[in-house]
C-alpha cells in the first residue's frame, strides 16, 4: 500500500527521498538557466528580468519586438547568413575528408594507426584559444585573415575529429565481406562504396555531420581571431553584443538557438536508433 517497498527501514526511506531531491535540484540547475531565457525574450521592456506585468500575465508585459528586430535587422540577418554558409561549407569539407579517412582507419592494414589517429584528433584536444591564435598567425601570413575561406578552412579542421570518431565507431561492426561480394559481382570500389558501404554507415556519417555543423555554428573564438566583421556569425554578434551593449534581442536570438539545438538533439536520437537497427544491434 505504501510508496516504498516494505522491507526498507526508515533510514533508507529518508535517504531515498533526500537522494531524489538532490538529483532533481541538479536537473533544475541544468535546465532552468536555459528555459528562463525563453519567457524573458518576450519582454515588452528592455530589461533582463521579469517585470511585474509579466508576472501577472498581463498581455501588455509581453511583446514580439525583439524577434522583429532579429528578423529584420540586416546586421543580424547577415550574421545568420554567414553562420549557415560557413557551417555548411566547413561541414561538407569535414564530412568528405573525415569519412574517407575513417574508411582507411578501420582497415586492418592501416599503418601507424595510433599516431595518425592522434594527429587527426588533435584539433579536438588543443584548447580553442591556442588553435585560434595559431590560425590567426598562419592565415595572416597567407593574407587570408578576414576572409570567408580562412574561417571555413579553420572550422573544417575543428570539425573533422568528430566525423572521424563517429564514422569509425559505425564501421566497428561493419562486415567487410560485403565489399568483396560487391566486387565479385563486378562493382567498382566507388560504386560499392555508394551502394553498399554508405547506406550502412549513413547514420554515423550524418551524426558526424551534425557534430561538425554545430561545432562551426556555435564556434566563436576562431571567428573572433581569424574573421572580421564581414565574417560575423551569430555567436560573434552575441559575444560582441554581450560585451558592448547588451540588448534583449540577444535573448530572442538565444531562444531561436535553443529551438535549433532541440531539433539537432531529436535528429541525432533518431539517427542513433536507425544506426542500431541497420547494424542489427537489438535492445
Amino acid at each position: 500500500m505504501s510508496f516504498f517497498p516494505p522491507h526498507l527501514s526508515i533510514f533508507e526511506r529518508g535517504w531515498y527521498v533526500v537522494f531524489r531531491l538532490i538529483c532533481v535540484s541538479v536537473l533544475v540547475f541544468l535546465l532552468v538557466p536555459i528555459l528562463v531565457i525563453v519567457p524573458l525574450s518576450f519582454n515588452a521592456l528592455p530589461y533582463f528580468t521579469f517585470t511585474p506585468e509579466m508576472l501577472s500575465f498581463d498581455p501588455k508585459g509581453y511583446s514580439l519586438q525583439w524577434y522583429r528586430e532579429f528578423f529584420t535587422d540586416p546586421n543580424w540577418q547577415g550574421a545568420v547568413r554567414n553562420s549557415v554558409f560557413i557551417a555548411l561549407c566547413s561541414t561538407a569539407i569535414a564530412v568528405g575528408l573525415g569519412t574517407l579517412a575513417a574508411l582507411g582507419l578501420s582497415r586492418a592494414d592501416m599503418p601507424a594507426r595510433s599516431v595518425v589517429m592522434g594527429l587527426l584528433i588533435s584539433p579536438m584536444i588543443v584548447p580553442l584559444i591556442i588553435s585560434a591564435v595559431g590560425m590567426f598567425f598562419f592565415y595572416s601570413r597567407l593574407g587570408l585573415q578576414g576572409t570567408h575561406l580562412a574561417v571555413i578552412l579553420a572550422h573544417a579542421a575543428l570539425g573533422t575529429p568528430f566525423v572521424v570518431i563517429t564514422v569509425t565507431a559505425t564501421l566497428v561492426g561493419f562486415d567487410f565481406t560485403l565489399l568483396r561480394a560487391a566486387a565479385s559481382l563486378g562493382a567498382t570500389p566507388v560504386r560499392a562504396f555508394f551502394k553498399v558501404t554508405l547506406p550502412i554507415i549513413f547514420p554515423g556519417v550524418m551524426s558526424g555531420a551534425l557534430f561538425a555543423f554545430i561545432t562551426s555554428f556555435d564556434e566563436v573564438v576562431v571567428v573572433l581571431f581569424v574573421g572580421s566583421f564581414h565574417q560575423r556569425t551569430i555567436p560573434w554578434k552575441m559575444f560582441s553584443g554581450i560585451r558592448e551593449h547588451i540588448s534583449p534581442t540577444i535573448l530572442a536570438v538565444a531562444t531561436c538557438l535553443i529551438l535549433v539545438s532541440m531539433l539537432l538533439l531529436v535528429s541525432l536520437e533518431l539517427l542513433r536508433r536507425r544506426g542500431e537497427k541497420m547494424r542489427g544491434i537489438k535492445h
Partner: peptide, 20 residues
C-alpha cells in the same frame, strides 16, 4: 588504406599542426 587517410592527414597537418 593510407591513401584513404592521406587527404585528411594532409589537411590537418597543414591547416592545424603547422599553424601551431
Amino acid at each position: 588504406a593510407f591513401l584513404l587517410v592521406a587527404p585528411l592527414l594532409t589537411f590537418v597537418v597543414v591547416g592545424f599542426c603547422l599553424p601551431i
